[in-house]
């Protein structure tokens, strides 16, 4: 009797450990898939305003999670505006005024270009495995694909979203949906990812829709038109001097 209990218990224990391991592995594979030493991305962001929608195109250079440089290409009004992010500092350059303005503190909470993303959302791109503990909650099908449902709970304090839920494609290790939660469990934002393509040997979502669940509206669509990994980006790109060019 005693043995049976121990066996059942250890199976159970192993099972849960196995699950945790699974969730962690899934997350690791997902991180491997999505993050890279560097990348150059051309993208379109469509913001659905109350009155009209508009599309902004930009090109960004990103190294790891610390450095990023973005230049806006269109519309004409925004063309030439550049943004430099180094760790948790952000500078914006405006060609019309030839000024570099530093964005700090509370301003990082503001929305970027009227979208459903804040500067902070854009800037916090630490690897999920670094900041969250993962548990596997189950599986489902989404967009016609099998997915794991993974619950992430923050391991660190300084993070905007205490918990996340990910719907991860079981074969490609790409999230198809993300939900971002407040500490209380209130759903704050939902990201829907689609148009998964294989690029340089890795699966990558080319379309995303960000939706602030507390606000009215259709959210913000983000489409990657071109992405290249592991490029040769000169260090100069990530200096304030580059902003003014």
């Amino acid at each position: 009797m005693k043995h049976i209990i121990i066996i059942v218990f250890s199976i159970f224990l192993f099972a849960t450990q196995g699950n945790a391991q699974d969730a962690k592995t899934i997350l690791q594979r997902l991180d491997e898939n999505l993050s890279s030493t560097n990348r150059v991305v051309k993208s379109e962001m469509t913001i659905h305003g109350k009155r009209r929608s508009r599309t902004i195109t930009s090109k960004s250079y990103t190294v790891g999670t610390e450095k990023s440089f973005t230049i806006y290409l269109s519309p004409a009004r925004d063309a030439g505006t550049k943004m430099l992010k180094l760790n948790n500092q952000l500078w914006i350059y405006s060609p019309s005024t030839d000024r570099i303005i530093q964005i700090s503190g509370h301003l990082l909470h503001q929305s970027v270009m009227g979208s459903d993303l804040s500067y902070e959302d854009m800037m916090d791109d630490r690897k999920l495995t670094e900041v969250y503990d993962a548990t596997l909650e189950g599986s489902d099908t989404l967009q016609g694909r099998d997915v794991y449902i993974i619950k992430l709970t923050a391991r660190v304090d300084d993070i905007a979203y205490h918990a996340q839920k990910l719907w991860v494609d079981t074969q490609r290790y790409v999230p198809l949906k993300e939900e971002l939660y407040a500490k209380s469990g209130q759903l704050l934002k939902r990201v829907t990812l689609s148009d998964i393509q294989k690029i340089e040997g890795r699966w990558f979502p080319m379309k995303m829709n960000y939706k602030d669940m507390l606000k009215q509206g259709d959210g913000t669509d983000f489409t990657i038109t071109d992405i290249k990994f592991n490029q040769n980006i000169p260090a100069y790109q990530f200096t304030k001097a580059a902003l003014k060019e």
Partner: peptide
């Protein structure tokens, strides 16, 4: 519904 940030900047809402 009220949304705020705690001392670390983590969102919370209730």
């Amino acid at each position: 519904l009220l949304r705020w940030r705690d001392k670390n900047g983590t969102f919370d809402a209730r």
